[in-house]
Design a protein around this nucleic acid. Sequence first.
DNA 1: CATAGTATATGAATAAAATTAATTGATTAT
DNA 2: ATAATCAATTAATTTTATTCATATACTATG
Lengths: 298, 298
Amino acid sequence: MLERIHLAIIREVDRQGSLTEAARMLCLTQSALSHAMKKLEQKFGTNIWLREGHRLRLTQAGQYLLAVANRLLPQLDHAEERMRQFAKGERGTLRIGIECHPCYQWLLKVVSPYLAQWSDVDVDVKQKFQFGGIGALFGHEIDLLVTPDPLYKPGLHFEPVFNYEQVLVVSRQHLLALATYVEPQQLSNEVLITYPVETDRLDIYTQFLQPVGISPKRHKIIETTDIMLQMVASCRGVAALPRWLVEEYASKMDIVPVRLGRQGIAKQIFLGIRKTDTDAGIDYLTAFIELARQPVCL
Amino acid sequence: MLERIHLAIIREVDRQGSLTEAARMLCLTQSALSHAMKKLEQKFGTNIWLREGHRLRLTQAGQYLLAVANRLLPQLDHAEERMRQFAKGERGTLRIGIECHPCYQWLLKVVSPYLAQWSDVDVDVKQKFQFGGIGALFGHEIDLLVTPDPLYKPGLHFEPVFNYEQVLVVSRQHLLALATYVEPQQLSNEVLITYPVETDRLDIYTQFLQPVGISPKRHKIIETTDIMLQMVASCRGVAALPRWLVEEYASKMDIVPVRLGRQGIAKQIFLGIRKTDTDAGIDYLTAFIELARQPVCL
DNA sequence: CATAGTATATGAATAAAATTAATTGATTAT
DNA sequence: ATAATCAATTAATTTTATTCATATACTATG
């Protein structure tokens, strides 16, 4: 039978590139590992590693098992962690995934009252997903997804929790600072600052500039909101952010929000969960959604 | 450590409802199982089963582990099956999931030349998914999804493979049999026969009737295409099916296809796969997609 | 409510499996 | 060329899983 230890061996040997190193990581002797590897190959009747001198390279079958290991071992690890929490009477860890930068800012506001109310629940926030947020939800990497893109599919449930307006941020000194709203054309001579994501995931491109075929003069990438807004304040460019976020910073910085287009750009944040979890009635999970639905003071 | 055998025990005890029965299924003595259960609970320091007389009921922690078991054990089983195939030099099993009835009809046409060409690949077709086709793809229940609803998300790739027209089928004796196309209003006095799926997954509702707020006189549910068309032929109702499928049956049955609306309803079938599988370059998988892209003689 | 029948739990014994120690042969680096 | 490193092997040992025999607990029923 394919056991957990076998998957762990395959993963560790691949990671360390050497049997001896892998043995140390697994708290085994080199001999034990060598035996286990041989036995595994005998059991399956196929090579898993190709021995090229001291180098170990995975065969096709081995690569397959490595993929299985990388997928299943984290889930087993988490199950154990969860059991430890059950044993200690703790409620568990709420693993939240976020897919957009404004989501993060919003989340910060919701998490703090939640933590106060649910002192025996930990919160873990993850941002990078190999298979995207939906994949992470299906793959049990996270329990809750904060996203602007809901996806009504069997097995998942999405709940809208927050509406906001995406606006342009400009320096108070900027020409546009006094405008009630801005047209796409007015950005053709501006430097646009955004987070480091593909343009087709940026609303200012998909919903504002691209429909009329306009590009900004330049496109600068900045990782953090604070630096981004300092750049804006010092007239190095303009950016697109949620209105509530801009208004929050406006008190300490020389920045002004301006509506994007006549109608403005309306956005929504959704919480995605697995239906199995709602059915299981995990109280601290449903409580989070409940709390998130309340209007937040931003 | 949480081992495979532990998950198997939890699942089997739950399935059989009795320790003794579960032991028989697992090819163990009752004693061995009892020992293993006790050890597992001691290891985690928490109860997994509540002993109520001879009845065994899972605790909350136990229910959690059962969910983990039901999720992970099939994946481990499949990994083993896959290894046996590697050992025998077989290529593998292509697990195809389908989400719509016309998909199935189309699939039959593609599978037979594929099987002829890839004699060392087995094909397995699944139709029911707890978490939908996308969930099955992410959860490694299937390797290929045949669906009318593509979903461009990280980790997944969708490839359009087949275009067809969804038409109304009526008896050759029917009034509408001579019409070049039919308007929604003309169905308000008809019996509509469909497969047993929710109306919002039926194009004739979502794209034809609902937009103008029309309902058929009655809605009958039939499972199989053959019976459905026999009902149509004997003037018991009308149905909506792909044109090519109707034309195929038209030679042996008194049925006629009629365009739905002036423009007709255009449909597409997509093949969905995990990006990890394309990257791994699984030849028999990419070959299937390649074959599917060729125009099929229908 | 007593009792036969059935189910689970336990302790000691045994079997099976994993791990180690000690050593050899092969490969790598200098 | 040689020392150092690494993996493989054999036999011994330890650990773990399983069984056997038996005790205990529960259920159904007359």
